[in-house]
Design a protein around this nucleic acid. Sequence first.
DNA 1: GGTTAATAGTTGCACACGCAAATAGATTGC
DNA 2: GCAATCTATTTGCGTGTGCAACTATTAACC
Lengths: 149, 149
Amino acid sequence: MGIADDAVEIRATGWRTLVALHAMIELELERALGESAGLSVVEYTVLDALDRQDGWHMRMQQLARAAALSPSATTRLVTRLEDRGLLTRVLCADDRRGIYSELTAAGRALYETARPVHDAALERVLAEAGERPELAPMVQALHAEPATV
Amino acid sequence: MGIADDAVEIRATGWRTLVALHAMIELELERALGESAGLSVVEYTVLDALDRQDGWHMRMQQLARAAALSPSATTRLVTRLEDRGLLTRVLCADDRRGIYSELTAAGRALYETARPVHDAALERVLAEAGERPELAPMVQALHAEPATV
DNA sequence: GGTTAATAGTTGCACACGCAAATAGATTGC
DNA sequence: GCAATCTATTTGCGTGTGCAACTATTAACC
């Protein structure tokens, strides 16, 4: 095998590792959030994104990007959360195509409940992943992130 | 904010970064594989896992683990690929509960076609991700992986 | 050695997703 | 100022997924 072939193999292996770590984390978060707040990970992601906007609202597109979802899935996700009274749709005055989503008091309250559970689960699963040799370097990189998303 | 709070934030941000990178890679692989071979990423993953077994067969459980899928999803995935003639189910003699999956000639041929497309797409998307400052460290870690999965 | 418990895989069911088409509103060009 | 184009969001539809219940086989126990 040449150097180029090695690089291909390394990338493929690294990708499989990333998938494994992603699945492991998501599984645990799904379990913890579902159990404690009846929220899925994407649902939590939306509440989290809205909360990080400091009370301000976000458009469907922004939410779609934050949750890595298609427009249609975002519509339905927002509808679900709206039906549960966790957020409200607000028409945008200056661009009447746009629709803002805004946390309700109940939504913010549920988020406040879910957040520590989420954070604890994440810490736990990352600690566990860090002990597996294949996953450790990527966990390390995850911790080193000073990224502004 | 205390040190502990910072750590929580760093983990959350790192997790979001990992999700973003995962989504970006998966989207591109999905596109490339779908276009060139009519395969989804999970389908390719199964063919790849079987091929890496060097002609040998794998049980449903192993495939489920390799593809990060539930048992039921694995059953249906294997059924789909079997219907397309890409693999066959083989009953296991010593443990008659177990079922092996084995690549057919057509399956191996399609895999040989898809693999370079997959590898090229992966290289391309990783290069692109490496240029984004938020993603770069994790891409770096992915390349550094010498992990034996 | 026969009953009980554990394991491997499959099916019913409900649901979340993506794609493509539809709708409604903004923007551009002339 | 109006036609054509572009953008934001929503719906119809088909499909892949997980959970829980089920069947079939093996292992454990006494």
